[in-house]
Design a binder for these strands. Structure first.
Lengths: 129, 129
DNA sequence: ACTTGACCTTCCAGTCACTGGAAGCCCTAT
DNA sequence: ATAGGGCTTCCAGTGACTGGAAGGTCAAGT
């Protein structure tokens, strides 16, 4: 299977698949003409990677998760630890963004948004407290 | 005022201040010895930038906001538009992250996290549906 | 046989907003 | 004179791709 088929099946761009090979996440074979050749195993790996990335895991986390997935002697605790750490990071990011959202919402709501220059948004950004 | 004083006052790293000059956000003068020289105006600008960045505005948004701030004939509508767009982006990001968080939380909660290899997290990542 | 067009390949550069580090100049205090 | 700290510039790296150029390969149509 060539790269565009793998791309279609996994919904990953060909560029991304090449990148994953470059950083050693997958190692597809090569056909006689030099084209990458993807087997079902590679498709499974790419699907796994796509799902993990969609959950926001870093590529390095994905590397670890993929290794655990392929290790029949893994402990689920190792997987869970990675997931918990990531979950914590996501929750922290949500908290940060929520604080920004609240502040911004307030500022947007108090700004007239007309032709006049007075603007609580700018006032807030320039205030030193 | 030298860069380390400006950095302390604004809580911005010296490197960041140099970067802001490099990309044309600020244009501090130079002392005879070649050191950057920061006036109150620059401190105000840097403070403004630090606040805007803390609210998640991109550097390019910051450039626009700074220009509006310094334009006495601005329309607050222009400021508000930038803020609204950014607010929308933040809300979208929160929605994305919240979906990830919910999925991850569920997976983490259903994973035993012990020495056994069975792991709903890996099962979920490898499932094709 | 030839051409067209869609594939595929590699390699280089750019994204965003810094951040680290090296090499070297400047200033003050001892 | 020297030691230290602060300042300068420049280069490279971060994460995870993404765009584009230059060129090889393949199948179909004429």
């Amino acid at each position: 299977m060539n790269i565009s088929d793998a791309a279609e099946i996994t919904s990953l761009p060909p560029k991304t698949i090449r990148y994953y090979e470059e950083i050693g996440l997958i190692t597809p074979g090569r056909s006689a003409n030099g084209y990458r050749s993807f087997t079902d195993m590679h498709i499974h790996q790419l699907t796994f990677l796509a799902h993990a990335r969609a959950l926001g895991f870093s590529v390095e986390d994905c590397r670890s998760l993929l290794a655990l997935w392929e290790d029949r002697d893994r402990a689920s605790a190792d997987v869970r630890k990675i997931a918990e750490t990531h979950l914590g990071a996501i929750e922290a990011k949500i908290a940060d963004l929520s604080a920004m959202r609240d502040t911004l919402r307030h500022l947007v709501n108090t700004c007239a948004g007309d032709n006049r220059p007075d603007c609580p948004i700018l006032n807030s950004l320039s205030s030193s407290d």
